Simulated assay, not measured.
Amino acid sequence: MNTTPVHSVVLAGGGTAGHVNPLLAVADELRSREPEASFLVLGTASGLEADLVPARGYRLREIPRVPLPRRPSTDLLRLPGRLTAAVRAAEAAIDEIDARAVVGFGGYVSTPAYLAARRRGVPVVIHEQNARPGLANRLGSRWAAAVGTTFPGTSLPDAVCVGLPLRSEIADLVAARAADPAGVRERAAAALGLDPHLPTVLVTGGSSGALNVNRAVAGAAVELLDAGLQVLHLTGRGKADEVRGVVAGLAGTHDVGRYQVLEYLAEMHQALAACDLVVARSGAGTVCELAALGLPAVYVPLPIGNGEQRLNASGVVEAGGGLLVDDADLTAGWVARQVPALVADGPRLAQMGAAAASVGVRDAAARVADLVADAVGAAGAPS
């Protein structure tokens, strides 16, 4: 651990949990090392950071969102004015706490933060969450003092793979499972109204849900229940009624109490503590949290976008810690054939969990904090 004092740090990132959670994890690590340090977080009024950052005890400075157009449009004409205003706001934040470093996690607010730091001569440290880097981090990495990535194959200059800084609930769960796995499972199951002694499958497509995942798993509800499984199915907001309807239709012949349907669960760490297998999209946060916890999974990458979700899961799948199934191939028939057989095969499931844990990173927040301390130390005292 690098104990060089950082004194004051501006952190930039927001909009999604993928940016905010790693930011808070690194801020917490830096604060634990140096309780008297000053921190200021750059974000927007509309992103998750508007609630999460103040709730964690950090000051949030709102700056204008600056989306970088990927193709010619009217937004491109507005870019210079928006960017200038945002850079000035970021400079003011740097000046306010005499920041010794700017730490960015990508997203709309990071570009102006990186440009402001460059103008002020303040070192930039970047963390890139995804296997394929975003536009802001590709730009900022050109002059960054250090770049940390979640995955080893991410293409950014002079980057080092540090893993994904874990949100506090997951970091705490990792430690608790290591100390008392049976007790953790029982307490989590009790909190969720689950039976801790039944093999449990967690299904999640993220906060917005995944329609095909929902339909495929619900379509196999008979086979899952007949196999003696317990299912906790998180459908995503606004997508629960269809799944509930399918499950309710089995009430006369099956114990549908073993198939719980929720739109969303704030205490996601409880669900992870209570389950044996996860069926999920392969966002970076999901992949890294499951690997850190040593949980086997069926990963179903989002079928649209730039293919980053497939890349996110590739490392843990190649290690044997999960299965990768194309969205089009995840049907009710596939779930009915594969999932009960997998959960019933205890040795295989245990091997998958161990393989996932072997590639999981549990100290990424400390690694990023070390990069920040190194950058501050290399820059020396402010003039």
Rank of each mutant, 00 (worst) to 15 (best):
T4K: 01
A12Q: 05
T16H: 04
T16A: 01
A17M: 13
H19T: 01
V20D: 01
D28E: 12
E29H: 10
S32C: 04
S38M: 15
L42G: 03
L42K: 05
R61S: 15
P67W: 00
L83A: 04
R88H: 15
R88S: 12
A92P: 06
R100G: 14
V102G: 11
V103M: 08
G107T: 02
R118V: 10
R119M: 08
R120S: 09
I126S: 03
A136L: 04
G148M: 07
T154F: 13
V162A: 02
L164G: 00
L164V: 02
V174P: 03
V174H: 04
V184C: 05
A190C: 12
P199V: 06
S207W: 06
N214M: 09
R215Y: 00
V222Q: 13
L229S: 11
G236I: 07
R237C: 05
R237Y: 09
D241K: 14
V246P: 02
V247Q: 08
A248P: 08
G249F: 03
H254E: 08
R258H: 06
Y264R: 01
Y264N: 01
L272E: 06
A280H: 05
R281F: 06
A291P: 03
V300R: 03
P303D: 09
N306V: 13
N306P: 00
E308N: 00
L324D: 11
T331F: 15
Q338C: 14
R348G: 05
G353E: 06
A356T: 00
L371M: 14
D374Y: 11
G377N: 02
